[in-house]
Design a binder for these strands. Structure first.
Lengths: 244, 244
DNA sequence: CGCGAACTTGATATTTGTCAACTAAGGTGG
DNA sequence: CCACCTTAGTTGACAAATATCAAGTTCGCG
């Protein structure tokens, strides 16, 4: 399976073969992290930058009352903490939702990269800005949509994001997370998440069995969720113009 | 009143006098934009980068059903669209909540800046990453807190942000927006926003009359909102360690 | 003074949360 | 291979938060 980081960055910049080789080197020798473990805890000042190569991790915060909000899913090709070079402390935690493989990249490698590889640097900033745009979309989702549409929107987004890194087919993808995690993404109860999911199943919009999501009719799900992938700023076909 | 852009960036980087002079030049000759007007509409590919110098603007999206979600307030010293250089199209709109003055900075000036002013470039990326951290905090706020605490949290954040650009006193600031705008920030109805606000008033946590918010007891409001300003990544005293 | 926008209030509907039980599924040791 | 055990998923009854609708009321401004 080809390198998810390379695949992702190709959507944000024009890379040369040398760039690709450099990125490939960067992401070799990953280590395994078990499910439900922290990769980086809040308050830390990480020495390495962390890159997810397999599995699903998430950014989250825990409140004093014990509630948890997940603010992003990290899938293959996503960096956990590119921002700490400029911000210093982690203001949130990153943990695995499922077993992951992760690459630890020394800060010095990143510094070298920003000094000598302008196209890659540009691509990494592009990825950071897309993360920010995704955050904005999640905010819209949470503020203005009911639980079922919100969930449908997340499925649409996940399908596209995983397709861009070669981890999803036309209409299905591995989604090895619990309904409780899903609830913490949407800002609702796991009971309510379960009911919203059953709604979607009853409407024939999604199937989700044994850790795989299957979308019988992608345009229909997109219409239901009012999903428009332009906030992902992908160049090329996956951007979903096919929905017409 | 000193330059809000300079004041803000001082919190994220060490600037020289030359840097300050450059930034000061950058932000001269602002133009006026009336209240409730778009500065940049969704779908545009702006030629200039826009910087708010006075007033309040907001990032927002409008959904097919007409509902609106505000994703950020832009106050003096904030850039509207630094990201378009890398992302291309605007995936959301920016409009004024109140009369603003705005500076239009040609793309070429920004390119020159990134090529020849590394400290400023670094400071601008710092500001972008703080925007992203703020977005994450809003997501937590919306997902996990009831309307009254959510509103209290926004007041706490606004107080700190405006203090860092010299637009707020120890315990009060101009807040010239409507309750309807506020509701669109929090993802609730304006009726509900009004009731939450009256709760806060009844508890003695905030006063808000004639476009000015006054906080009688800042530590008490912070405690109620569970506000911890570390996500704003300010260096120095405003970071709010005084709450203990 | 009068007009329109913003704010306030009450009654009621809908969405979402809470609690508590129950069922299904996966993993482990005998 | 099965018995058990833990976790995840499901259901129902009820409570709380929030939305909706419709009618006032106040405020700023010309």
């Amino acid at each position: 399976m080809s390198n998810p980081l390379v695949m992702k960055l190709e959507h944000g910049a024009c890379l040369t073969d040398a760039d690709r080789a450099f990125l490939h080197d960067l992401s070799s020798r990953p280590r395994r992290v078990a499910a439900h473990r922290d990769i980086i805890p809040e308050g830390e000042r990480p020495e390495d930058v962390h890159l997810v190569m397999e599995g699903v991790a998430c950014r989250y915060k825990i409140l004093p009352n014990g509630r948890r909000q997940i603010m992003a899913f990290l899938v293959p090709g996503d960096f956990c903490d590119l921002h700490v070079a400029l911000l210093g402390l982690m203001d949130h935690s990153i943990g695995t939702s499922w077993g992951c493989t992760v690459v630890d990249i020394p800060r010095a490698t990143i510094d070298n990269l920003t000094a000598h590889h302008p196209r890659i640097t540009r691509a990494l900033w592009w990825a950071t800005l897309v993360d920010e745009a995704t955050l904005r979309e999640w905010l819209v989702n949470m503020g203005q949509r009911d639980a079922d549409r919100q969930m449908a929107h997340l499925f649409c987004e996940s399908l596209v994001r995983l397709q861009t890194v070669g981890r999803a087919s036309e209409d299905s993808f591995e989604f090895p997370i619990s309904q409780a995690d899903l609830a913490d993404v949407l800002g609702i109860t796991s009971v309510h998440a379960n009911r919203a999911l059953q709604d979607l199943r009853a409407k024939g919009l999604v199937e989700w069995r044994s850790k795989r999501v299957q979308v019988p009719n992608v345009p229909r799900l997109r219409a239901f969720a009012e999903f428009d992938p332009k906030y992902l700023h992908l160049k090329g076909r996956e951007s979903g113009d096919k929905q017409a």
